[in-house]
Design a protein around this nucleic acid. Structure first.
Lengths: 155, 155
DNA sequence: TTTATATAGAATCAATTTAGTCCTATATGT
DNA sequence: ACATATAGGACTAAATTGATTCTATATAAA
């Protein structure tokens, strides 16, 4: 599937929601309601994000969570790292080689390049970007009709 | 983990191996040995790739598989599509209508854009590229997947 | 024609991963 | 003291994945 886990997906939505009022304290229950996930699930995600220092937490009555930094200083790459560990397209692109053959080694270096490109994309996208609806406010968007990339093959 | 499945990983290695002699017919058993995966596993991957028309298959004695097109005309994006379906970073970025929050969700369009960028990267990388050693030789190697033998035998 | 080889495809089984929930401890405002 | 809220871990259930097995079919060669 090549997918993020659903918890990570929720996490980005929660973070984007919080980014709309950066200084505010949100309780787990409130955020669960706002983004439409079950309370224990939201709570689990928030605990992880707090442990990874992307959120600050306040315990006790009227406690909750708030962004540890301004939205423009929190990247999607950081959120993904917090919720599912170092990103990598294949196991061997992260850990030591799995392939006994020369050509397999060649494959590995290409995966690593892909990882790098992907990381660049995700590291350049911040919560500030993510909280804007649609594609209107995208930092480096391409306009339709200009600069069309080559298509994906025989399709 | 944001990873390709291991079968897809094997698939790319198998395809890269086959790309070294594009016109040649390889049996499943031979390829299994060459890349170091169990024969039934290689077979399963090859069947799928053949069904998706990235390989041609020849049945019967001295049968096997060969690339359906020259290596430079087969992209990694195509291999991934064949082995794990349409790539997409999140569920909602691929299929509409799964998430009740869809209309209100600010992040969806951003995921779609990331999908697009990733696809461009993978569509631009062909088997011809993959079979060239990229940069570094690899210091250590290990056998893929099957260092954990399953005992299904007596007992 | 028979036999050995090899893929097609479905079904199955086991292991792992993920999602979701629950419980107890601790901190804080009223 | 009490109500509220997070911390952290343990636990269960479900989905996904990896790997195997079985039957059918096609082909080359004896």
């Amino acid at each position: 599937m090549f997918r993020l886990s659903r918890l990570t997906d929720y996490g980005t939505v929660i973070m984007a929601h919080m980014a709309r009022e950066p200084g505010r304290v949100y309780s787990a229950a409130e955020l669960a309601g706002a983004v439409g996930v079950a309370a224990p699930t939201a709570s689990k995600i928030l605990k992880t994000l707090a442990r990874k220092a992307l959120l600050h937490s306040l315990r006790g009555a009227h406690g909750g969570y708030l962004l540890a930094r301004p939205p423009r200083e929190i990247s999607i790459a950081q959120v993904i790292d917090a919720l599912e560990g170092p990103l990598g397209v294949t196991e061997c692109s992260v850990a030591a080689g799995l392939c006994p053959q020369e050509n397999a080694c060649a494959v590995r270096s290409h995966w690593q390049r892909i990882d790098w490109a992907l990381r660049q994309t995700l590291a350049g996208l911040t919560l500030e970007d993510m909280m804007q609806p649609g594609s209107a406010g995208m930092p480096d968007r391409r306009r339709p009709g200009h600069d069309r990339p080559r298509s994906d093959g025989p399709g």
